[in-house]
Amino acid sequence: MPALAPLAAAPPAAEGPVTNDLDLAVGALRAVTTMQADFQQTDRNGQRVAGKLTIKRPGKIRFQYQPGVPLLIVGDGKALTLVDYEVKQVQRWPIRNSPLGALLDPTRDVKRYGTLQPTSDPSVVSLEVRDRGHPEYGVITLIFQRRASAPGGLELVGWVSLDSQNRRTTIRLANQRYGMDIADDAFRYTDPRPANRR
């Protein structure tokens, strides 16, 4: 898997290629109907966990963490839910209020809010998405690798997100697979809370 390229301090490319790469990135996101991949997540403290990512557009996502990590994140098309089975807590928030909204929210105009970032590798496209009118939504930088076999000609290889508290999370993807049948049941979860406390 290609490493996430560091952002370079090079000046932006000419307007034509920039526009084309922005169109390519938006098209690549829209071209994915279903996707599965292995992921490695690194938080701001450098702690790493791994797992399996499942996406079904529009709006559905599942982060199934490795055995021993009592967390689950699922998006059902409207909200993201973080389930902590260790402490039996469930948190939900609208997809549009998350940096992941750029990846999942079908109403988010990525082209309107996206800005290409210069990279040191011409095979890498880096797209920062932020809604300056809603800084509380956070920022996500999507990293693509040019690959003819991927939907839209670009393969999503990871992202870096900053939430409204400026907490940084890096996701790297590997073994991306596309176009499989995925049941909506994959984006449900077992609520760990006692029934009388829900």
Results as ranks from 00 to 15, higher is better:
residue 54 T to I: 03
residue 41 Q to V: 02
residue 55 I to R: 14
residue 45 N to C: 00
residue 46 G to Q: 07
residue 67 P to M: 06
residue 40 Q to I: 03
residue 71 L to R: 12
residue 72 L to C: 06
residue 63 F to I: 05
residue 71 L to D: 04
residue 41 Q to G: 00
residue 48 R to W: 03
residue 45 N to Y: 08
residue 55 I to N: 13
residue 53 L to I: 14
residue 66 Q to M: 09
residue 63 F to E: 09
residue 40 Q to N: 01
residue 72 L to Q: 13
residue 66 Q to P: 04
residue 58 P to D: 13
residue 70 P to C: 08
residue 69 V to T: 15
residue 63 F to D: 06
residue 41 Q to L: 04
residue 68 G to W: 12
residue 59 G to L: 13
residue 50 A to F: 04
residue 45 N to P: 00
residue 41 Q to H: 01
residue 68 G to C: 11
residue 72 L to M: 08
residue 53 L to E: 13
residue 68 G to A: 07
residue 60 K to M: 14
residue 64 Q to T: 03
residue 61 I to V: 15
residue 68 G to M: 09
residue 46 G to P: 05
residue 43 D to F: 01
residue 60 K to G: 06
residue 66 Q to R: 11
residue 52 K to N: 09
residue 39 F to L: 02
residue 59 G to F: 14
residue 52 K to R: 15
residue 62 R to F: 06
residue 62 R to T: 05
residue 61 I to P: 11
residue 70 P to E: 12
residue 57 R to G: 12
residue 46 G to Y: 05
residue 48 R to G: 03
residue 61 I to Y: 07
residue 52 K to L: 09
residue 71 L to A: 06
residue 42 T to V: 05
residue 72 L to T: 04
residue 59 G to I: 14
residue 66 Q to T: 08
residue 47 Q to Y: 10
residue 69 V to R: 11
residue 43 D to I: 00
residue 68 G to H: 12
residue 68 G to E: 11
residue 55 I to K: 13
residue 40 Q to S: 07
